[in-house]
Structure formats: C-alpha cells, structure tokens
Amino acid sequence: MAQERVRAALAGRTARVEAVEVRDAAEAAQWGMTGSPTVLIDGTDPFAQAGTGPSMSCRIYRHADGTVDEAPRVDELRQALGAAGGPEAVEEDCCESDLLDPIGRAGRGRRAPAERGLRAVHQAVLRHFAATGQAPQTATLTPVASSVGRTTQEVLAELAREDFLTLDENGQIRAAYPFSAVPTAHRVTLEGGVEMWSMCAIDALGIPEMLGTDAVIASSDPVTGEPVTITSENRHTVWEPDSAAVFVGRRSCSGPAAAVCCDAMNFFTSADSARSWLEQHPDVQGKTVSQELAVQIGRQIFGPLLAAG
C-alpha cells in the first residue's frame, strides 16, 4: 500500500525509490524505522512522532480527520515531497489525481483495514460477487463477522460509511466496488462463464486485474450506442473498436464514489465521442485517457483488494 501511494504521489515524476527489507531490531534502529511501513524522504521520516523509538511492529498512521490507516495518504505524501524540495507536480497531474480521488478514496485506497473485521467481511463480499455475480445475503457473512465479535449489519454499515460498498434502504448490499448488484452499462464475463456488472469503466478493467483471470467486458458508447468490447487475456487487452477510449470524470458534488463519479467513467468508441459526451454534461469535469492508462488505473486501485494479510 505504501509503495502504491508513493507512486501515486509522484504521479509519473522521476524519483529514485528504494524498497528496504528490515529484518531485525538492529536494522530498524539503523534505518530509523518506527514501525512498518516507514517512508523516508532523503533519509528523513516526515511522519515521525516524538518519543517513538525503533520498532518492528506494524505502524498505524493517524490522519488530520482522526481516522487511522496503514500508510500515509497520497495527499500527505505529496505535501511531504513538496516540503522536502521534491519534484513539482504539473497542473495536469494534480487534476488527474483529483479526478481519481473518489474512486481511490482520496488516496486511502479501496483495501479495507484489517481492524474490526472490516477486511475479512469486505473480502468475503468481493469473493462472493466473483464466484456468483451477485451480492451475498447478510446471513452468508454472519460467520465472518461473528468471528470478531460483531454483527454483519455493524460491519456492513461501517464499510458503507467508509465507501467500500453501498447499501440499499433495507441494508442489503447494492454495490461493492468494483461490483454492482444491479444492472449497469458494463457487463463483465469471467473465464468460466460467471457474469457480473461493474460500477464503471475503470471498475470493469479492475475486475480481471483483481481476480487474476481472463475476462470479456461488454459496454457501449453512451453517445452513439455502438458496442465497445475489451477482451483481457493473459494480462493483455484487445479493444474493439481499436479506437476505443475511456473517459475518467467526476461530478462537482461530494459523497460516495457511486454518486460522484461512477456514471462519469465510461467507455467510448473514440476520443471524439467522449469529447461530445463531455460537452453535453457541463456538471462533469474530466479527461479522456489512453487504453493503457485506464488498465493501469484499474490495476492500481483494485489489484490489491484480495491480497492476504
């Protein structure tokens, strides 16, 4: 997670990044690691807290809004880089980061924290979607939630507050990014035949990356109605038509990603068609990205969600 956020904070700018494995307490003291992960910029820990000594334990980061996390946020890393005289971000990089904030939870990522059973239940939800194409019933998740002394409703409500998933008026799962329990414009068929809906174009591209499987994505251009098909096989994608593009956008409102950006991230048959759609939606800001970048964004956001640990 820390490496992913450092990469996002750099936003393509050139920097030397070294990953160091710390194997014992002596090396922790040598490197100045006060818990894993520790991020050093030019040898200095910009997030160090007074009185904290070297440690091999897991490190918890407390953010300004009172929430805790397993790594510094992207915006915090960006500020630390700037304060250290790091490479400046060009305006386009900042805009792109702002566009992706809702889908990436403002740099906090979409991998739920391990505390309070959040990750275990979240991963159980995602695996059920992957296996069946449908959302699990709350009763299906009871054994996982009860193993940490909580009810399914409590864990799902917390996951919803943190925008890992959305619930309907009855407390049932309506979506768990990248999956949707109700039909959308993007249909994903996995190798083996399981079919499911995704919340947006980026989510659709993230599904095969998250599951490590081949898939076919069927969508359509919202302007022309023409089909757009992406076949992912052995981590290689084939786009039909080959001029297809992805528009990454967001609305000016605030709220969960489902409300802010999901219907503003679509496949188009061409960049010209995406530009036409944007002209028809003045409340949306965004940009057309290349096929390669769209896949990379999907991989970065959703690839780690089912990782162990």
Rank of each mutant, 00 (worst) to 15 (best):
2 A>M: 06
5 R>M: 00
7 R>C: 05
8 A>K: 03
19 A>S: 08
21 E>F: 08
22 V>I: 06
23 R>T: 09
27 E>H: 00
27 E>W: 09
28 A>G: 04
30 Q>S: 13
32 G>I: 03
54 P>N: 13
57 S>C: 01
60 I>W: 07
65 D>Q: 09
67 T>A: 04
69 D>C: 10
73 R>P: 09
74 V>D: 05
76 E>K: 11
91 E>R: 14
91 E>K: 14
93 D>Q: 03
98 D>I: 14
107 G>K: 12
107 G>P: 11
113 P>S: 13
115 E>L: 05
115 E>F: 06
118 L>V: 13
125 V>F: 08
127 R>G: 02
129 F>H: 04
137 Q>W: 15
138 T>D: 14
140 T>S: 15
140 T>I: 15
140 T>H: 04
143 P>F: 11
146 S>A: 11
148 V>W: 02
150 R>W: 08
151 T>P: 05
152 T>W: 08
156 L>W: 00
160 A>N: 14
165 L>S: 00
170 N>L: 10
171 G>P: 05
183 P>N: 03
190 L>M: 07
196 M>D: 06
196 M>C: 01
200 C>T: 07
204 A>K: 01
205 L>T: 05
218 A>F: 11
219 S>V: 02
220 S>Q: 05
225 G>E: 01
226 E>K: 02
230 I>K: 01
239 W>G: 03
241 P>L: 08
241 P>C: 10
241 P>Y: 11
242 D>T: 04
246 V>T: 11
254 S>H: 07
257 A>V: 11
266 N>V: 07
266 N>W: 14
268 F>M: 06
270 S>F: 05
271 A>G: 05
272 D>H: 00
274 A>E: 03
276 S>Q: 06
279 E>C: 12
279 E>V: 12
281 H>A: 13
282 P>T: 12
285 Q>P: 07
288 T>Q: 12
289 V>I: 13
300 Q>K: 15
